[in-house]
């Protein structure tokens, strides 16, 4: 039969076990952002323009190819890197040159980055170049947005929805 010492000891140890689990299962509280901060997520997955345009093969060239390989157009697969700049109130937040994916560099260029910024009204500028033959930027957008504390602003790119998206 357990004596008082062992019963008390067991009770204390079980209580400590429960207290440890009960406390650390939800405490201390974690603050992902400061109370006056917002989050900007810059992310896109975009296939830039091809470095060289497609060209028509001559009859001689076609003749040299195997019958099953005689495609009339020769389209080099490699794409340009995507250059992107993100500014906040006129100051450069980031500038990135993102290479296309894939061994042949023919895949989409992808980026995901997050920035903690002070909440409030900000002039957000996004500039992008996906064609090395064009000087400057092929897409750009600039807007003043009110970023409430804890808001997540997603900067994305979708040519089918008008290009640069601020959502």
């Amino acid at each position: 039969m357990p004596d008082a010492f062992s019963l008390t000891g067991q009770a204390l140890l079980y209580a400590a076990f429960a207290a440890c689990i009960g406390w650390f299962s939800s405490h201390p509280v974690y603050h992902p952002l400061e109370a006056d901060e917002a989050l900007v997520k810059l992310s896109f997955s975009h296939a830039a323009q091809r470095k060289a345009p497609c060209r028509e093969r001559s009859a001689e060239e076609l003749q040299k190819l195997a019958p099953n390989m005689r495609a009339p157009l020769d389209c080099p697969r490699e794409r340009w890197p995507v250059t992107v700049e993100l500014t906040l109130d006129g100051k450069l937040l980031t500038r990135a040159v993102v290479n296309p994916g894939g061994v042949a560099r023919d895949g989409p260029a992808t980026l995901y980055a997050r920035y903690r910024v002070p909440a409030g009204a900000h002039r957000i500028g996004v500039r992008m170049n996906d064609d090395g033959n064009v000087e400057g930027f092929t897409h750009q957008r600039e807007e003043t947005l009110q970023l409430a504390p804890q808001r997540v602003l997603v900067v994305d790119f979708n040519p089918g929805k008008g290009g640069i998206l601020l959502q």
């Binding site: 429960a18 201390p28 509280v29 109370a35 989050l39 804890q150 808001r151 997540v152």
Partner: peptide, 29 residues
């Protein structure tokens, strides 16, 4: 069992990708 009755586990607010929760009751384990 006693811990489950004294301090039942509860959920935080439903997830919303457009905002980050100000405070999270993380399970540190």
């Amino acid at each position: 069992l006693a811990l489950s009755l004294v301090q039942p586990v509860i959920s935080a607010a439903p997830a919303e990708v457009a905002r980050v929760a100000a405070a999270l009751a993380l399970d540190w384990f």
